[in-house]
């Protein structure tokens, strides 16, 4: 290989390095930039771009990520296909009922796993590049992951919605679809924040996987993804009504069935009263804000 950097041909004997050094300076050192700055945007977009390049060159994540919810929908839908009409609320069939649950659960699963690649970066030492850099805010790491997962979720959601339509679930109206996207973005940002918080707090990927493992399915079963609230025993109704996933699932399910929806429409009869679509959105936004605030001290930690 002739590419070895040989001293005699090293270009710095010439005044090149001096010239290079005196060329226009590095980043702006005068004022460390904050969260709402061009610098934050620049670093966030750069990290996001990296994730998309990875996806483009290793598309198996995307392929598996689209196939998995479709299998869920198909198999789970078939499992309860013969359930008597009316058992699942207003839905005309279980597939229609299930679609909202699968959409939310898929987005949630993706966001919950968002910390894993960052944990591997941390273990391989790549994360140190970000940690020693003068980032405007380490929230750029969170936001970059969230943008990536959100984009992935939207592709998955499109696939689920399309397959459900073929299975006879129909389509939400366009504005309803926009609201579905908004709900998913809020959920993904909040859960991604929590997952990255865990990544900064836990010692390694084994521990992170363990936490993901014990969180994932219980949160699914303790939500209205698979059965309606009034189907559950009383105590589980309470748990499911505290589960943020329920507040994402029920509005989407409602949007599917009611083209005449409004923010005031009641979408959930919780043990402590009826909850409107608007309240669900507020709960999700509140959850997201709390998650983002809660991880702030973890992001500030100095880890190597």
């Amino acid at each position: 290989m002739s590419t070895t950097l040989t001293p005699k041909s090293s270009p710095i004997d010439s005044p090149d390095l001096r010239a290079w050094k005196s060329a226009s300076g590095g980043g702006d050192t005068s004022q460390p930039p904050g969260l709402l700055s061009g610098a934050f945007l620049q670093e966030t977009l750069a990290m996001t771009r990296r994730l998309f390049i990875q996806l483009q060159r290793r598309p198996s994540t995307l392929v598996a990520g689209v196939i998995q919810p479709l299998i869920w929908l198909f198999l789970f839908g078939a499992l309860f296909q013969n359930v008597p009409q009316g058992l699942f609320g207003e839905s005309s069939n279980y597939g229609q009922f299930l679609a909202a649950g699968i959409i939310v659960f898929t987005a949630f699963g993706g966001a919950l796993n968002a910390g894993l690649p960052v944990m591997f970066d941390r273990e391989f030492g790549f994360l140190n590049r970000f940690l020693v850099a003068p980032l405007a805010s380490r929230y750029s790491i969170v936001v970059a992951s969230a943008i990536f997962i959100a984009a992935l979720s939207i592709v998955q959601t499109a696939a689920v919605i399309t397959l459900s339509a073929f299975l006879g679930a129909g389509w939400p109206d366009p504005l309803g679809l926009a609201l579905v996207v908004l709900i998913l973005l809020t959920l993904v940002l909040g859960v991604t924040a929590l997952s990255l918080g865990l990544t900064f707090a836990l010692p390694g990927h084994i521990e992170l996987i363990a936490v993901i493992f014990v969180t994932n399915l219980p949160l699914l079963f303790a939500s209205t993804a698979l059965v309606p609230l009034d189907f559950m025993p009383g105590w589980l109704q309470v748990v499911a009504s505290l589960n943020p996933l329920t507040y994402a699932i029920e509005p989407i399910r409602y949007l599917y069935l009611h083209p005449d929806w409004s923010l005031g429409s009641v979408v959930l009869q919780s043990p402590w009263g009826s909850i409107s679509l608007g309240v669900c959105l507020a709960v999700l936004i509140g959850f997201c804000a709390i998650a983002l605030l809660a991880i702030q001290p973890l992001l500030r930690r100095r880890i190597a």
Binding site: G26, G27, D28, P33, G38, A39, Q42, E43, L45, A46, M47, R49, R50, I53, Q54, R57, R58, F124, G125, F126, N128, R129, F130, V132, A133, P134, L135, A136
Partner: peptide, 27 residues
């Protein structure tokens, strides 16, 4: 900072990593 173990993203090219580095230093 040049760490003892070289940690690179094996999927990215050298030029892409340099661009990433430039952006996280706000060049």
């Amino acid at each position: 900072y040049i760490a003892q173990e070289v940690a690179l993203d094996p999927v990215l090219t050298g030029r892409e990593l340099l661009q990433l580095q430039a952006d996280i230093y706000h060049i």
